[in-house]
Design a protein around this nucleic acid. Structure first.
Lengths: 354, 354
DNA sequence: CTGAAAGCGCTAACAA
DNA sequence: TTGTTAGCGCTTTCAG
């Protein structure tokens, strides 16, 4: 019953059947190699007959290019990361690269994972919302491995990064909340160690102080839905509860909205305002309608891919730190100021007046 | 300025520095090889000094095991697939396998992708909600490549599959909707070619007929949020609009809920009931509270992983078709029957009474 | 336990 | 354009 397992067909087998040399077979499947019409036909015939499939592992060994991009993402519970991952996969697909996926606990030390990634001889590395120890950063530069940090910055030079304009984001959200008359503001942070969360918070509170709104509340939501629900509960249990909450990402903002409407029986945009950060697809759903600072995922990913491909083609291409402008998309989760609205990409946005 | 790019350190370099043979280095990093204490120490010292990292590509070439699992998933727009992907990644991680990701348009022909997957010499293949041409099915069996279809069945024997009990699911949902007094039912299908959607629909309508509810409406939502919104609009625009809608998955159910509450100003669970299929994390959010048939993702993934590991360890392990029992989790998106409730895993579930 | 030697399947000079 | 010849970096017999 058990069909005997065929030994994989090699270029050698094909060559023998086609009556050509093994290198002729190789050339037939190597882009830009010169093969005669006759030879190519014989090879393709034999190939088809035998079911030949070039072994990319062997090819990688000699070309020293695996056509694999290591991608490290935190929990896919957050739709933002699913969207990023899918966009990355699609973008690289077009250039012939495949994604070798590493999913990691957001907070865990990523060094052991990176060790493993490098053993696989990936051609490049993308770290999404995850930092890189300076030891590894240096090492990657030394071995000429292009690395891009997505949605996180890094002290080390030599490592590229693509982030959105967290400074502008936090500030414009402060402007918006103050312009719409909020008086007791709160921030729900992701994790203390995340540079994005810190940058957003810092620019938010700095601008608040500039505007004379010195006091504000603060909780940590850990970037998760559950964590943010708990954080929101603590906030709303306060004697003087906030009337405006800025969450370090959309997932936490949606969690906050759930607590506010379904547990506190309050109305969003009237009793309490919630603002997120990311603009995940879900934020536009009518039942969510979240006012949020958009990080344009397509640009994010495209820039990361461009940086990597540039470095792949020319190893002297310097690392660059890219900061992408976003904008505040206005929906219904937060009370509106009187003016300052505009239109962009079919969305209603808001800019600080002048 | 440009730091010269170091040639990667090889086992040979380490051997030379350590004053041992290259094979000694290899043994040091090969599980279950015999190396003397002294030798091992020398190798490890030299290794550390040079920054040696075993090349898994070269290892794969000779062992004929890449430690890579090809995973093909449809759009990650659907959180169900993100959850599956993350669970797969985590599960394989524990056994030393990595995920080589292939993201594909749900409807596209997957053959070209599979061709590419096989060239990479993955050790096994998981196709999520995607079918396999019989040509490939046979080929995979012949080359001894374990394949598991997740959330989809296949005609070909020899290919394993893990699905939830779609027949039971569709039937119990019909029972539930009839028991709670609905009179005009509708089904929003995924794609016509999807076996899961067809199975769910067939068992749903069959049971409906058995219960004397012959007529029902039908639309196609294409498994997407937008598609399902459009389908729901068509349904709700009908002179005799449905009072109960069963959607082939949760994402579409949530889209339907959005249209019903925000566009039609109707109340879920009173004017119209919506039932989904999957039980994605979001279904439990207070603002969603979707009644849905649970597909236990952890079991799904665990079974798939078990099948693959069994076949990896013993190539004569036969393919198996696994069907996993789910249950109907009752929340607030659908009107309730009078009786039949129970508790399971901390969730309120419903079973056809008798 | 250790080293020498033979490849894994393929690409890339180099000659012809 | 072709075939011949070396390896890519590693694992794995096989002697010692």
């Amino acid at each position: 019953m058990a069909e005997s397992i065929r030994r994989p067909v090699t270029a050698h087998d094909v060559a023998k059947l086609a009556g050509v040399s093994q290198s002729a077979v190789s050339r037939t499947y190597t882009k830009g190699a010169s093969v005669g019409q006759k030879t190519r036909e014989k090879v393709e015939a034999a190939s088809a007959a035998l079911g030949y499939r070039p072994n990319l592992v062997a090819r990688s060994l000699i070309t020293r290019r695996s056509n694999l991009i290591g991608v490290v993402v935190p929990s896919l519970e957050n739709p933002f990361y699913s969207e990023v991952l899918e966009a990355l996969s699609k973008a690289f697909d077009g250039s012939g690269y495949r994604v070798l996926l590493f999913s990691t606990a957001a907070s865990a030390d990523s060094d052991p994972i990176l060790e493993e990634v490098l053993r696989h001889r990936v051609d490049a590395l993308i770290l999404v919302s995850s930092s890189l120890s300076s030891r590894f950063a240096e090492e990657c530069v030394q071995i000429g491995l292009p690395v891009v940090l997505l949605n996180r910055k890094n002290d080390s030079q030599g490592v590229s990064s693509v982030t959105s304009d967290n400074a502008e984001g936090g500030a414009v959200i402060a402007d918006f909340l103050v312009a719409s008359g909020h008086e007791k503001l709160a921030f729900i942070a992701g994790t203390p160690c995340s540079s994005t969360s810190r940058d957003r918070e810092l620019s938010f509170t700095t601008r608040l102080e500039e505007l004379g709104q010195g006091t504000f509340l603060r909780e940590v939501g850990g970037y998760t839905f559950e964590g943010a629900m708990a954080a929101t509960r603590r906030l709303m249990a306060l004697a003087e509860r906030p009337d405006g909450i800025f969450c370090a990402n959309d997932l936490m903002a949606i969690a906050a909205m759930n607590v506010i409407t379904h547990e506190c029986q309050l109305t969003l945009g009237r009793d309490v305002s919630v603002i997120g950060f990311d603009n995940i697809a879900m934020a536009a759903w009518p039942s969510v309608s979240l006012t949020t600072y958009r990080q344009p995922i397509e640009r994010f990913v495209q820039d990361a891919v461009d940086i990597i491909e540039a470095q792949l083609n020319n190893h002297d291409t310097p690392a660059i730190q890219k900061v992408i402008a976003g904008n505040l998309i206005v929906r219904q989760s937060a009370r509106l100021p009187e003016a300052g609205f505009a239109e962009a990409d079919g969305e209603r946005i808001w800019r600080a007046g002048n």
